[in-house]
Design a protein around this nucleic acid. Structure first.
Lengths: 209, 209
DNA sequence: TATAAAATAATAGTGACTGTCAATTTAAAC
DNA sequence: GTTTAAATTGACAGTCACTATTATTTTATA
């Protein structure tokens, strides 16, 4: 995966141009989405604004959605997760990994992430794609966790753990879409903290009437 | 929502025919999907097999996906959930609601559900749509829960609860797709039982090396 | 500079989906 | 039972994401 983005040092004119076109497409795409909405923006328009032919677009991104989704975050997160010391609990490790992942991002990257998340939440099509992505990410994490615990990869409890974390992230997305003023990274951490504390699910709701 | 399907008693020829066409479309669609795969089956084929025009298809289902998704399950589940006594914890109530929902289904309905779930898991497009549906279902449930607890509708912990349950259901789907022999309803219950028991998340993983 | 390789553009097509309008079928009024 | 109004359908034309193919241009290398 990461071999798609080689070191800036040994980049020929070719690779440099490709990266530039890639970034241009994303920027112009996001600009048009912002200005006219996602559905109203056609790939033809994005291509024209980026000064390439429509057919070339698909050599850079497999779908229109990919322009927004585009995450290398997953690999980063997993890498960070595997580095966590083995005496941490799963959630502690996951929480730390997420925190480190965010910390490594520049302010620009964080802002761009914020805009992308907002767009993702508002366009059903994108939301669907992002959910699938989460799904796959957590399947991957489930595998990592299983290995870490010496459990089979399809262990039921491990799958449930993965599911619950994934669910937390979705809830965070939803929460943030309703609270645009909230800091995304802070909310993520808050959510994981809640999980770390055991998530008072059993108690919550046994109300005496 | 449920007013779309009126009582069989006072149904004119019109309504009867509509229901019949609807069912025919679903059956023929599922048959074709089974025989040639989802992508390889065009709406034109489904329409032809159902003896209607392609343009009429879209008067019965907004999308090709809807042919597979088609859930009245949500309303049923929510209804069942609201009936649960207030002294049950949230998960207890949710678990009971799911159990009752399944119990009300005929064997045929359960089998059809099984086939649909299997198809949904294997076709990315459908998986995406089903995830969105879950998302919306649980947003609805989050609202119900908030009301039940006299908390604001955007309460953080409530959202997390909804998220975790949704995550559980996704994990169940994934688990079942890898264990086709497993009984879907049983696994759902097992998962919720695990949640009910507190889900040993914190403990899980603090391994001494 | 010539040549091979890679990237791009142009073109034609498929299929889901939308909108419109005329034709048909059914329900209801008389 | 016939007429009338409404609902349902079908035919048609069009949009747009996306695929496949082929010719053309651009870049890297010998």
């Amino acid at each position: 995966m990461s071999e798609d983005i080689p070191e800036p040092a040994k980049m020929g004119l070719r690779e440099k141009k490709k990266l530039k076109t890639r970034r241009t497409l994303q920027q112009q795409g996001m600009r048009l989405f912002r200005e006219q909405g996602y559905d109203a923006t056609t790939i033809e328009q994005i291509a024209e604004a980026s000064e390439i032919s429509p057919s070339t677009f698909f050599r850079y991104f497999p779908t229109k959605e990919a322009l927004v989704l585009e995450d290398d975050d997953d690999e980063l997160l997993i890498e960070s997760f595997m580095k966590q010391p083995a005496d941490k609990s799963l959630i502690q490790a996951f929480r730390a990994a997420v925190k480190e992942g965010f910390a490594e991002m520049t302010r620009e990257e964080q802002e761009s992430l914020g805009e992308r998340v907002a767009l993702m939440m508002s366009v059903p099509e994108l939301r669907a794609a992002s959910l699938i992505q989460m799904n796959e990410t957590l399947l991957m994490i489930a595998r990592l966790v299983a290995d870490r615990l010496d459990r089979p990869r399809d262990d039921f409890e491990v799958m449930m753990f993965a599911g619950s974390v994934m669910g937390a992230m979705m809830a965070v997305q939803l929460y943030c879409s309703e609270h645009p003023e909230a800091d995304f990274t802070a909310v993520v951490d808050q959510a994981l903290a809640l999980y770390e504390a055991g998530l008072p699910l059993g108690a919550l709701g046994s109300r005496q009437v």
